[in-house]
Design a protein around this nucleic acid. Structure first.
Lengths: 335, 335
DNA sequence: ATCGCGACTGTAATCGATTGCAGTTATTTA
DNA sequence: TAAATAACTGCAATCGATTACAGTCGCGAT
């Protein structure tokens, strides 16, 4: 691996001039510049970015903390992050945390040890260890989907889950549904509260009975969808419509429901969340809420970069647009 | 951000001693060490990993080049990579290349500019630019799934696609199928040749007619699966069984087939590849070949690390075990 | 008392860049 | 023609670590 010195030798100039032809080309004479570029080409020189990072104090990378890499929705966000980062000359360090605090601490620590300049968190936990909490104060950080629980208010990119759920609920009540079930993901989260709140507000308005015994599930997974559906089907009064808090859950639930010999949507309507690609290909295709995941990833990068560059944030909360995607998994109630 | 110097001040020692308590604790006296650790805690000092990387010449990160982050199979590989990397103190830089040479060059270049120590490539293209080809010679690099096409033989982690396809083909012929269709992914690749070769070898043995007009498709996607199925269904003699070169294709194909009012597997059997999670949840559940993706990711890390550490490779080609997962999408032929 | 050795610790060079400041020409202005 | 300015370029300090080498100290062996 050749260094800047070798280029100097070849071109007969100082390191300063070589460095400048790369960073501030117009500071150096055209002829010298050409000679240097030739030397660079001949030697196959590649600047050591780490060395330059030490000097400049910027690593030009971002860490992304993902609770679960298997979730296609997160994946889509990451794609957005990756693209936007790349466009801005940043690279992305991937941290699969599995929701484990220890792994979060470890990855979040990368920002403290100069390995990364900023942090994008796809979860609501405060990712730093208590030890690092003080240092974390000035770390550029954004969360996507849910606000991070901490003293300091970090910015967040999120959807209006309350309204989205109201839209979904109205969609279902307009089909005459009166008995609802919910298969949630992680409870104890803002999303959980917002979504459930949205649903309940509509049911209240329409004087439809609903109580928390009809809320099951605790994980965003196929398995949780299966188990949740099983639990709901075992109730004395079966729901005719089930809200699933993401598409994976919905797919798991549909699988289980069909296993019980029930028809979707004739016997039970199922709706999901996220609009992951496969949701259009399952049978029946899933009615769901589209979250612009890719866009959310891009926005997240924008926001961290703004913090990194020390620009004041325009707003601390970026709300993205949802839209309801009506497909065949929801239909008229069979009361 | 406090540096090593501040710790020196606090503890009243030299930078050397601080550095040593962190890297070679037993080189320093217990009492001094404690004093230093206290100082570190008090100052909230975090070593600047970039600075240390400059000195040691190791960045302790690996780049992973993915042609398509949406593919759940690649995702699973990446999860394996990420876990294994983390266990070995490495971090992973994510590069979504979209199969574009330019982006590949850019990401592969990270190894040349010291941002990463090694490269894991989930594709068969030679990821460096022609310019960098010479430098690439000594880059630690592994590919997963397919051997990289280049002068130098880089190691590869792969499955025996030929045998896997033979197993699948035998499974289908044992059900009495005689008319086959194939929806391939990227053609012009070793996987394509191996898989098609495996299929043809069985059909030849069993004297079953088959010609390349029954091979369609050119991309690993749902859409390609739909289009492929449509093309195959339009043939004068329809196949009774369709090989899809991954599960996404298979899911797209099943969707299209059902849209034509045909029953799976009664009218047509469909088999896929990879055994991604959702393949068990589609209707009907998909018969497929399980590739141990997570394990492949882990192995890939093992192999690059071996190269990075300069250890000779035991073998240049790591073959992982496949297994055939029989589900309801394949059944007796309806000739 | 001297020597040798082990156990620590410090000095200073070094990794590969970047950059403020100063020096050298060449060119323009008075 | 002298002075001022512009346009380059180089010197050397610096970023924040790591580490070879040397120095100090205490203690047992001779």
């Amino acid at each position: 691996m050749s260094t800047i010195k070798e280029v100097c030798q070849l071109a007969g100039v100082s390191t300063a001039t070589v460095s400048r032809t790369l960073k501030n080309p117009d500071m150096v004479n055209v002829k010298t510049r050409e000679r240097i570029l030739a030397a660079i080409a001949k030697s196959g020189y590649r600047p050591n970015v780490l060395a330059s990072s030490v000097k400049t104090g910027k690593s030009n990378s971002l860490v992304v903390l993902v609770p679960n890499l298997s979730n296609p929705f997160f994946l889509k966000i990451i794609q957005g992050v990756e693209k936007a980062a790349q466009e801005n000359g940043y690279s992305v360090l991937l941290g699969d945390t599995q929701g484990e605090p220890l792994r979060e601490h470890e990855y979040a620590g990368m920002v403290l040890s100069n390995r990364a300049d900023g942090l994008i968190h796809l979860d609501h936990s405060f990712p730093f260890s208590d030890n690092d909490a003080l240092l974390a104060e000035k770390v550029p950080m954004v969360s996507v989907c849910e606000r991070i629980v901490s003293e300091k208010q970090y910015p967040v990119i999120e959807m209006d889950n309350y309204s989205a759920c109201r839209a979904l609920a109205k969609h279902l009540t307009s089909y005459g549904h009166k008995r609802f079930g919910v298969i949630a993901g992680q409870n104890e989260s803002q999303i959980y509260r917002d979504r459930l709140g949205g649903i309940k507000s509509v049911l209240l308005e329409e004087s439809i009975d609903f109580d928390d015994s009809m809320v099951v599930g605790n994980e965003y997974s196929y398995e949780s969808g299966e188990a949740g559906a099983r639990a709901l089907l075992a109730k004395k009064v079966r729901p005719t419509a089930i809200f699933c808090f993401n598409d994976d859950i919905a797919i798991g639930a549909m699988h289980e429901i069909k296993k019980h010999g029930l028809k979707i949507p004739d016997d039970i309507s199922v709706v999901g969340f996220d609009n992951i690609k496969v949701s259009a290909y399952v049978d029946p295709p899933l009615t769901t809420i589209d979250q612009p995941a890719y866009e959310m990833g891009r926005k997240a990068v924008e926001v961290v970069l703004q913090q990194i560059k020390g620009k004041p944030l325009i707003r601390n909360r970026e709300i993205v647009q949802f839209s309801i995607i009506e497909r065949a998994s929801s239909g008229a109630a069979n009361n």
